[in-house]
Amino acid sequence: MIKIQDIQKSYNSTLVLDIKELTIEKGISFGLVGNNGAGKTTLFRLLLDLIRANNGQISINGEDVAKTEAWKQITGSFLDQGFLIDFLSPEEYFSFVGKVRGLSKEDIELYLNELEEFFNGEILGRKKLIRNLSMGNQQKIGIAAAMMGNPEIVVLDEPFNSLDPTTQIRLVKLIRKMQQTQRITFLISSHDLNHITEVCERIVVLHEGRVAQDIVTSADTLDNLKAYFAV
């Protein structure tokens, strides 16, 4: 369970994030939408203890993320290219991430085999370094690494970006499957309203750093969101 309390973050005295209270239950898929500058990435960075909050705290399973480290073992994340070690080959990268997560070589292979469809034959065994792969393929690697080693929580910032249509659909399937079989809590931000309503059970709309809407996804959610953003 993730608990966000009174969190505030400002840059040069401009408040970019201000959330009174937000609780994300275990095992749900949680979507975050909002225009550029709404604070989506800031919220994720605060959750992952990548930046320091001016106020308030975020806790995972009751532990403050800024003061403890145990949550790191159960949290996988991919926010941007800054999570990839680009001079490694995909295999080497997965092996490194896997080792850090405490997986054996066999575990890693097993996991990568599961993702064969998602990779679409473009990632493994191509003898290329990550830096020489396309953005889309780098994105696939980052997402795959984030979900490695049965994490409880997976945080993905705009995972559908730069993926080709086929892979986007496969990613939706993959996230659903992992969420159902392993009860992973997914936190996903996206500009793509279609995909986010497809994947997420609960959607929060951020506007200028505040929670503008908090919706349990239903059949009308997509239309409501479209109406909300069509200003």
Binding site: L50, T75, G82, L84, I85, R101
Partner: peptide
Amino acid sequence: YFDYLITSG
């Protein structure tokens, strides 16, 4: 990839 290092545990 420092962001990865500090979130990886």
